[in-house]
Each structure stands twice: as C-alpha cells, then as structure tokens.
C-alpha cells in the first residue's frame, strides 16, 4: 500500500530529515511510526501526502509512483488519504457538520448524499448528536474525533494520523486508538505517528522507529531491544 524505496529528504538549508528510509505497509495494515521529536516522523507523513517531495528515492502508494504526480493532481491524491492532525485543523467558524462535510463538498456531493455520510461518520466517532455544535463548544477529545470523522467521511483506503493523541490523557488516547482499530478492521490501512511509547507498548502493532532520520527498527514494539 505504502512503499518507501531508499527515501531521503534534505530540507533547503542542509537539514537532513530522512535518510534512506525503506519500508512497505501492506493494504489493510495498521502501523505506528515513532521516534523523538525531530526524528523525521512528520516529514515522512508529509512525503506521503505530497506536502513535501523526497530529495532521493521514491514513494509509492498502491503501486503509483508519487514522483509522477503533477502539482495539479495533488488534490486528487489527498482525497484518497484521510489525514488527522494533532491540532485537528478544524474550521472554527464552521459547525461540526460543515467541517465534516468539507471533503464531500469539495468532491461535489449533493446535499442529501453528503448529509447521510456526514451523520454516519459522526455517529461512528460517537458525536452523532453534536453536528450542530461549533468546535469551540467541544472538548479536546471531541474536537479530535471531529477531525477523524472528517478524515473518514469519504471512506479513503488510507488513514494518516500525526500525533492524534498528543493533547489527550491516556484514557481518551486509547479511545481514539480503538477508533482507528475499528476502521482498520474494515480494511483501511492506518499509519499513526506518535511519540507516546506507553500507548504503543499496550498494543500489538507493527512499529516503525525513526532516529535522526534513519529507520532503526521495523517490527513489534516488544521485539525491540530496549
């Protein structure tokens, strides 16, 4: 599903964020991406959503080489990827419903069709009754779930999450992870970047560990020589 082939990324100015990263995430797989701040987690996710381009190597999604994607095609790539952010990136002056409906509006869904899907997505994250609210009226955990509902509303085959539990307490974090598990069960590939090692330790999922831009470990957390 996601394949990195000797991918390196050097930012202008000389900072090397990733060097020769090599891995493959299978369709329908769920994996964690971990490492200290500045280890290159965000850069790796940005290469998948083409917010950045690699300096060397190649990134493939579903067999498609992202180097061949022209700037005008990037929006269509992003429609295939549900993205979740630590700071949720909600539009504060729009209702929960409008926030979640945004990807569908962009794709040109009719109002009725969008409404069905938005309410279903909100139901799935447990916010079915709050679609009229505005993001400020919600707690941090609820805001994050609105972000998740927006990411899954057009049913993408791939979910990327950048520190989705960053601001949440362990109980809420686990609830969010359970949500991702439920999407993974119906076949969505999920890649979650987090530095919350405690959370990862409690789960049995593949974990990619980055250190100073290199992939130092790829496997189950418990297999790691700590």
């Amino acid at each position: 599903m996601i394949r990195f082939d000797q991918v390196s990324k050097t930012y202008p100015g000389g900072h090397q964020a990733l060097s020769q990263v090599d891995f493959h995430i299978q369709p329908g797989e769920m994996a964690f991406l971990t490492g200290h701040s500045g280890a290159g987690k965000s850069t790796l996710l940005k290469l998948i959503s083409i917010m950045e381009r690699p300096t060397a190597g190649r990134v493939m999604i579903n067999g498609n080489d992202l180097r061949k994607i022209k700037p005008s095609q990037i929006p269509f790539v992003r429609r295939d990827i549900g993205m979740i952010f630590q700071d949720h990136r909600l539009l504060m002056d729009k209702s929960v419903f409008d926030n979640v409906a945004l990807p569908l509006v962009i794709e040109g869904y009719s109002v009725q069709e969008a409404r069905k899907r938005v309410l279903a997505a909100l139901e799935k994250v447990g916010l079915g009754d709050k679609y009229r609210h505005y993001p400020q009226m919600l707690s941090g955990g609820e805001q994050q779930r609105v972000g998740i509902a927006r990411a899954i509303v057009n049913k993408p085959p791939l979910l990327l999450a950048d520190e989705p539990t960053g601001n949440l307490d362990p109980k809420l974090s686990m609830e969010i992870i359970r949500l991702f598990e439920s999407f993974n069960k119906v076949g969505v590939a999920v890649l979650i970047a987090t530095h919350d090692l405690g959370l990862i330790a409690r789960l049995k999922y593949r974990t990619l560990t980055l250190k100073e831009g290199r992939l130092i470990n790829d496997g189950l957390e418990e297999e790691q020589a700590l």
Binding site: N64, I69, F76, V77, D80, E113, P157, V186, G187
Partner: peptide, 18 residues
C-alpha cells in the same frame, strides 16, 4: 475521481464509495 486507487469505488468494505 481517484488517482491512486483506480478501482476504489468498486472495492468492498471501507473502500466502497458510490
């Protein structure tokens, strides 16, 4: 329109999209 997943619409489960 799906660029990366040509047959995304017809696939089952989470990939299904009308």
């Amino acid at each position: 329109m799906s660029l990366l997943f040509r047959n995304r619409e017809t696939e089952a489960g989470a990939r299904k999209r009308h």
